[in-house]
Simulated scan of single mutants.
Amino acid sequence: MRTIPIYAVAALAEIAGCFAFWAWFRLGRSILWLLPGMASLAAFGWLLALVPVEQAGRAYAVYGGIYIAASLLWLWLVEGARPDRWDLIGAAVCLSGAAIILWAPRAVP
């Protein structure tokens, strides 16, 4: 199934793009950080459009759970702050919800 890898790469692209803005605005990095940030956000939008889900709202809902888990990985791997048990429990709940939305049996119209 190619859906999960697309969501994962989209999450990485969105987080990296948003972090570029964070780095410029909050960490005082060069405004040049915005160039790869904007490219990364454009890649995010393109990738999310590739997800084989019929309705955009459903694709975004599933993505939300994956984004939360990916954000915690970013927190740990890039920012060096290990997620606590409440972060992990919250991510598990979100991923469970995303899985229900993605894989629920639905009548084909």
Rank of each mutant, 00 (worst) to 15 (best):
Met1Ser: 07
Met1Thr: 08
Arg2Gln: 12
Thr3Trp: 03
Ile4Arg: 00
Pro5Cys: 06
Pro5Lys: 05
Pro5Glu: 04
Pro5Val: 04
Ile6Trp: 01
Ile6Glu: 01
Tyr7Met: 06
Ala8Thr: 09
Val9Trp: 03
Val9Cys: 04
Val9Asn: 00
Val9Ser: 01
Ala10Gly: 05
Ala10Met: 05
Ala13Ile: 05
Ile15Gly: 02
Ile15Cys: 03
Ala16Thr: 05
Gly17Cys: 00
Cys18Gly: 08
Cys18Thr: 08
Phe19Arg: 03
Phe19Glu: 02
Phe19Val: 05
Phe21Gln: 03
Trp22Phe: 08
Arg26Met: 07
Arg26Phe: 05
Arg26Ile: 04
Leu27Ala: 14
Gly28Thr: 00
Arg29Leu: 10
Arg29His: 13
Ser30Glu: 06
Ile31Leu: 15
Leu32His: 13
Leu32Gln: 15
Trp33Tyr: 15
Trp33His: 14
Leu34Cys: 12
Leu34Asn: 08
Pro36Ser: 06
Gly37Asp: 05
Met38Asp: 11
Met38Ala: 12
Ala39Asp: 04
Ala39Ile: 06
Ala39Glu: 05
Ser40Leu: 14
Ser40Gln: 13
Leu41Glu: 04
Ala42Asp: 10
Ala42Phe: 11
Ala42Gly: 11
Ala42Thr: 13
Ala43Thr: 14
Gly45Thr: 15
Gly45Tyr: 15
Trp46Asn: 13
Trp46Arg: 14
Leu47Trp: 09
Leu47Arg: 10
Leu48His: 08
Leu48Ile: 12
Leu50His: 12
Leu50Tyr: 13
Leu50Met: 14
Pro52Trp: 11
Val53Trp: 09
Glu54Ser: 15
Ala56Ile: 14
Ala56Leu: 14
Gly57Thr: 10
Ala59Cys: 10
Ala59Val: 09
Ala61Ser: 10
Ala61Cys: 11
Val62Gln: 01
Val62Tyr: 00
Tyr63Ile: 10
Tyr63His: 13
Gly64His: 12
Gly64Ile: 12
Ile66Phe: 09
Ile66Met: 08
Ile68Ala: 13
Ala69Leu: 11
Ala69Gln: 06
Ala70Phe: 04
Ala70Tyr: 01
Ser71Lys: 02
Ser71Ala: 06
Leu72Val: 13
Leu72Lys: 12
Leu72Gly: 09
Leu73Pro: 15
Trp74Ala: 09
Trp74Cys: 10
Leu75Asn: 10
Trp76Gln: 08
Leu77Arg: 12
Val78His: 07
Val78Tyr: 07
Glu79Asn: 14
Glu79Gly: 10
Glu79Val: 13
Gly80Ser: 09
Gly80His: 07
Ala81Val: 12
Arg82His: 10
Arg82Glu: 12
Arg82Leu: 11
Pro83Met: 02
Pro83Phe: 00
Arg85Ile: 06
Trp86Cys: 04
Trp86Tyr: 07
Asp87Asn: 01
Asp87Arg: 00
Ile89Arg: 01
Ile89Asn: 02
Ile89His: 02
Ile89Gly: 03
Gly90Tyr: 02
Gly90Phe: 01
Val93Trp: 01
Val93Asp: 00
Val93Thr: 04
Leu95Met: 03
Leu95Trp: 00
Ser96Met: 10
Gly97Cys: 03
Ala98Val: 06
Ala98His: 02
Ala98Phe: 01
Ala98Met: 04
Ala99Glu: 00
Ile100Met: 07
Ile101Leu: 06
Leu102Gln: 02
Ala104Cys: 05
Pro105Leu: 12
Arg106Tyr: 02
Ala107Trp: 14
Val108Trp: 11
Val108His: 12
Val108Leu: 12
Pro109Cys: 05
